[in-house]
């Protein structure tokens, strides 16, 4: 494990903590896309099918359990919690999951490393993760005043992806790490989706003004 990978995992974890903080302390999920959260739950459910069969490390197993538990509990809170669900911007969060899920499924069936159930599901999870942030970005663009926690949440997610790319470059140079085209390209696409957001996020932070995305 290198420093980029560890920092990437930690920013990923921090993004989840920031989101849970918002839900638990403010009892609000305003500005958070349920569609994106449901896609993440789907990502972890399909990627970690190996959680009880292939042991990597205690660290890996614990992190997988954390991401599974938190992603499903966030979805539960947004859909069912008496108070939290009232703050959900249902009318604004209109992105259709199926438009993302279906192409990802077809692509995973066609472009994969091995045509087995587990491998196709794993590949599918990579493709879905690459585009899972889209409903959230659309919602951000529609939100006039983005609160700090929501901005930080998306920023931390983007940072996690950027650090993973540094991790792959580092692994490629230091280990005899395979060139995993599927992982790398979908990871790169995912990171590029944040580029625009990063630009406005850093600008608002530099100028000390509220984050607002142009329509």
């Amino acid at each position: 494990m290198n420093i980029f990978r560890l920092s990437g995992d930690m920013t990923h974890l921090m993004s989840v903590i920031v989101l849970l903080l918002k839900i638990h302390t403010i009892k609000s999920c305003a500005g958070i896309s349920l569609k994106t959260q449901e896609l993440y739950a789907l990502v972890f459910a399909t990627r970690y099918l190996d959680i009880f069969t292939d042991f990597v490390s205690v660290y890996n197993t614990i992190m997988k359990l954390i991401f599974l538990a938190t992603s499903f509990s966030i979805v539960w809170y947004m859909r069912h919690h008496k108070i939290v669900r009232r703050s959900y911007d249902k009318e604004q969060d209109t992105f259709r999951h199926l438009f993302l899920i279906l192409p990802c499924l077809i692509l995973a069936l066609v472009v994969n490393e091995k045509f087995t159930f587990k491998e196709v599901m794993w590949t599918f999870s990579l493709y879905v993760e690459a585009v899972a942030i889209l409903p959230q970005l659309v919602l951000l663009q529609r939100t006039k005043n983005i609160d700090n926690l929501t901005g930080q949440y998306v920023f931390l997610l983007g940072a996690y992806r950027a650090l993973y790319i540094l991790n792959w470059i580092y692994r490629y140079l230091t280990e005899k790490h395979f060139v995993h085209w599927i992982t790398w390209i979908s990871g790169l696409v995912q990171t590029l989706l944040y580029a625009d957001f990063f630009y406005y996020y850093i600008n608002s932070w530099k100028n000390n003004v509220r984050l607002q995305l142009p329509a």
Binding site: S57, N60, E113, W122, N167, H177, T183
Partner: peptide
């Protein structure tokens, strides 16, 4: 290095 070495990532 095994083909699945990337699966040690999250």
């Amino acid at each position: 290095v095994s083909e699945s070495d990337v699966k040690d990532e999250l």
